[in-house]
Design a protein around this nucleic acid. Structure first.
Length: 188
DNA sequence: AGGATGATTGCCT
DNA sequence: GGCAATCATCCTC
């Protein structure tokens, strides 16, 4: 019998980032067993002025030009880590929020005692809760510590403008699970 | 070599 | 709602 929740393969990610982003909603992400169901992601590609890859490869964004299905992790504002899944060359999906389901106690501890929707409702919070930092940059998503499994359940997906950018602000490449209380912000 | 900036968060008013 | 924190990265001189 095939597994009910198949592990995502590199081929899943070797597609345009917006397609991958849409299909990632509802996927379960675990890092060393800690995580939950993705409810908010954003797509970025090389033709996109808001993307780190827009001006071509640099030391920081090197992973975005590496193989699909690997992690791109960077630090923002000198404080917070952000996790991306690399798709076709120069493109990636930013993981912005998930519904915490596994390893709640450890997430709460890492998040300074916060709980519930405060655990993973934003890219920086999510990385803190899941223990993501530079050590995961460039690692393949198909092997430990990562686990990515598709869900059999369907749900309604909504799109809107991306958060926190100053260029290409109208591009509707934010994908969320409609009605989820675990989003970083309501859909505007 | 120097300066502006950022795919954020949390605290303060 | 407004803004400081905090520093690696990248662009410009």
């Amino acid at each position: 019998m095939p597994p009910v929740t198949p592990q995502l393969t590199p081929a899943f990610f070797d597609r345009p980032a917006p397609e991958v982003a849409c299909d990632l909603i509802g996927v379960t992400l675990l890092v060393d067993g800690v995580g939950g169901v993705l409810v908010e992601v954003e797509a970025y590609d090389q033709q996109d002025p808001a993307s780190h890859s827009f001006k071509g490869p640099t030391p920081r964004n090197a992973a975005m030009f590496g193989p699909a299905g690997h992690a791109y992790v960077y630090k923002i504002y000198g404080i917070h880590w952000c996790l991306n899944f690399v798709c076709q060359p120069g493109s990636a999906v930013l993981i912005r929020a998930l519904e915490p389901l596994h390893g709640l106690a450890l997430m709460q501890q890492r998040r300074g005692g916060m709980s519930g929707r405060q655990l993973c409702s934003g890219p920086g919070k999510l990385c803190q809760a899941l223990g993501i930092d530079a050590a995961q940059n460039g690692l393949p998503l198909a092997s430990p510590p990562f686990s990515l499994t598709a869900s059999a359940e369907s749900h309604e997906i909504a799109t809107g403008p991306r958060i926190g950018i100053t260029k290409a602000v109208a591009t509707p490449w934010r994908f969320v699970r409609r009605g989820s209380p675990f989003l970083s912000r309501p859909l505007s």
